[in-house]
Design a protein around this nucleic acid. Structure first.
Length: 443
RNA sequence: GCCGUGUUAGCUUAGCUGGUGGAGCGGCGGACUGUUAAUCCGCAGGUCGCAGGUUCAAACCCUGCACACGGCGCCA
């Protein structure tokens, strides 16, 4: 019963001249009442099936002709090499049946015209019918790329003997500013959905030393941009005995590794999306420069941008700064006053903290935020107090420093943003099957 | 939270200075023995987002509301 022959095998030439059975869905149909072309789709691609009335008989011909778009069918036939067929191979049908019909009263709603509106964004209709839109070529391609990105992240860390480690998704407090937490009822108390794995990872850092995860993070931001989701996939890592530069090295290697994995595994998919492979190759091969915050401010001021030292760099500034970048750039050493308490002040100049953001080119924005953690008990208490945050909310975090604190650090990478950037997507929603934003939780 | 744009058939849309809403795709029927988003002929399918108002007359003008999309702030 299980399927063992795929459309891709037909185009590979594996079954040339042989009679096989294919299982899949009707992609498109066309033809006359003597010869009918049924384009069959499965997860590996599409193949043209040629149905001739004289070959299969009236009953089978009429039956297969009645299969509407997205009906599921099994088709038996002989694999034929024919240059008239898209892809060079086709099935000369000897028989077949409809497994799951589509009723003419309610045809498949995702039509060519529905997808015309998808360029440069997605229509309300396509978002409402996301469960069906998943079957289209563009979405399938995005999901395959996404799978390779996730695989590349796991491989990168596992090859370096990192331990995959899991933090809870229900949490009691915030990592950063409390306004962006989703509150959930929790048996008469309040709990929140996690924004980051980091605090829990720091707790395990003395146990595992090298750890990573890929997990969802939740932020209740009413952001309406092509870079934001309320539920996004967060790849995070934490290392003991490492500083800002070590963490940055990992961030750069990981991102370059993801780009080269996509070139190996998904170059056809990238090309079908119109992505320039040379661009992706550059992201895989070229080192990512480091720029200090002060240099960035000077550069921006030199360009006539109205910005003062001490301000955080918002997207409008990032955009100007990155417009001339041809690879991602790290921005390091932000002013202490612009960053939360867990960033360690630079011992060489405590006005700054040992942190970094990785900014993607082409306007895709920040893809990594990370740095060295404030790791001594004395410093963490100072930093918490100077922020005016109550200490008791962070008792367990302080304990990590109280019992054998060591230098350590880590980063968080927005996996969906990386997918969006490397695939050249128009919107982050394009790379996740069921996107969640401030206005949509369905389907 | 702020700013902007939009809502007409299942979908994508046209609809001028207000005068009984058109097309393409999809569906149905028919023609065609090699189509490539097939083509050709025909048919069905509309409370013009909702509620008020102006007018002899509103898809069109006015007011309010709802929803959506885009951008900004915030961030991965």
């Amino acid at each position: 019963m299980a399927k063992d022959v795929w459309v891709s095998d037909v185009h590979d030439g594996t079954f040339d001249g042989q009679e096989i059975e294919l299982k899949g869905w009707v992609h498109r149909t066309r033809g006359s009442n003597k010869i009918w072309f049924l384009v069959l789709r499965d997860s590996t691609g599409i193949v043209q099936c040629v149905i001739k009335r004289n070959d299969v008989g009236d009953e089978c011909f009429e039956n297969l002709k009645s299969a509407l778009i997205e009906a599921s069918v099994t088709i038996t036939g002989k694999v034929n090499v024919d240059e008239r067929a898209p892809g060079g191979h086709e099935m000369v049908v000897t028989g077949g049946q409809i497994i799951g019909a589509v009723n003419a009263d309610n045809p498949f709603p995702i039509t060519e015209s529905a997808m015309e509106g998808a360029e440069g964004g997605e229509t309300e209709f396509l978002l409402d019918n996301r469960h069906l839109y998943l079957r289209t070529n563009r979405m399938t391609t995005m999901l395959k790329i996404r799978s390779s990105v996730f695989g590349a992240i796991h491989s990168y860390f596992r090859d370096l003997d990192f331990i995959e480690y899991h933090a809870p998704n229900f949490v009691a407090g915030a990592v950063e500013g409390g306004s962006t937490l989703f509150e959930v009822p929790y048996f008469g108390r309040k709990a929140y959905l996690t924004q980051s794995w980091q605090l829990y990872a720091e707790a395990a850092m003395p146990a595992l030393e090298r750890l990573y995860t890929i997990a969802p993070s939740f932020r209740a931001e009413k952001s309406r941009t092509r870079r934001h989701l309320t539920e996004f996939w967060h790849a995070e890592m934490e290392i003991a005995w490492g500083g800002n530069a070590d963490v940055m090295e990992h961030g750069e290697s990981l991102v370059r590794n993801i780009a080269s994995t996509l070139l190996d595994e998904r170059s056809d998919e990238l090309q079908s999306l119109g992505r320039d492979l040379d661009l992706v190759a550059r992201y895989a091969d070229t080192p990512y420069p480091r720029i200090r915050y002060d240099e960035a401010i000077e550069t921006l001021q030199g360009m006539g941008v109205d910005i003062e030292w001490g301000q955080d760099l918002d997207y409008s500034k990032e955009k100007i700064l990155t417009q001339d970048f041809d690879v991602p750039h790290f921005l390091t050493h932000y002013p202490r006053i612009a960053k939360p308490f867990y960033h360690r002040p630079d011992p060489d100049d405590p006005k700054y903290v040992l942190c970094h953001d990785l900014l993607a080119p082409e306007g895709y924005g920040e893809i990594i935020g990370g740095g060295e953690r404030t790791w001594s008990e004395k410093e963490i208490l100072e930093r918490i107090d100077e922020e005016g945050t109550p200490r008791d909310a962070y008792e367990f975090y302080i304990d990590v420093r109280r019992y054998g604190g060591v230098p350590h650090g880590g980063f968080g990478l927005g996996v969906d943003r990386v997918c969006s950037w490397l695939a050249g997507a128009d919107h982050i929603r394009e790379v996740i099957p069921f996107p969640r934003d401030s206005r949509r939780v369905t389907p």
